[in-house]
Computed example of a mutant assay.
Amino acid sequence: MSMQTTQYLSVILNELHQTVGLINDQEVEEFVDGIMQVRKIFVAGAGRSGFMIKSFAMRMMHIGLEAYAVGETITPRLEKEDLLIIASGSGETKSLVSMAKKAKDIEAKLSLVTINPESTIGKLAKPIVKLPGSPKEKEKSQYETIQPMASLFEQTLLLLFDSVILKLMEKKRLNSSTMFTRHANLE
Rank of each mutant, 00 (worst) to 15 (best):
S2P: 01
T6N: 10
N14S: 15
T19D: 00
I23W: 01
I23F: 01
Q26F: 06
V28C: 08
Q37Y: 06
V38I: 07
V38L: 00
K40N: 14
K40E: 14
I41N: 02
G47P: 02
G50R: 11
G64Q: 11
L65A: 09
L65E: 13
Y68R: 08
G71N: 06
I74G: 11
L78P: 06
E81N: 15
D82C: 00
I86D: 00
A87I: 03
K94F: 09
M99G: 01
I106E: 09
A108W: 00
A108S: 11
V113W: 06
P117S: 01
E118D: 14
T120F: 06
T120L: 12
L131M: 07
L131C: 10
P132H: 08
P132Y: 05
P135T: 09
K138P: 04
K140E: 12
S141Y: 03
Q142F: 12
E144F: 12
E144N: 11
S151T: 15
F153I: 08
E154N: 04
Q155I: 04
L157V: 08
L157A: 10
V164E: 02
V164A: 04
M169E: 05
K171V: 14
S176Q: 12
S176M: 12
S176N: 12
S177H: 10
T178Y: 05
M179I: 06
F180Y: 07
R182Y: 13
R182V: 00
A184W: 00
A184H: 04
E187R: 13
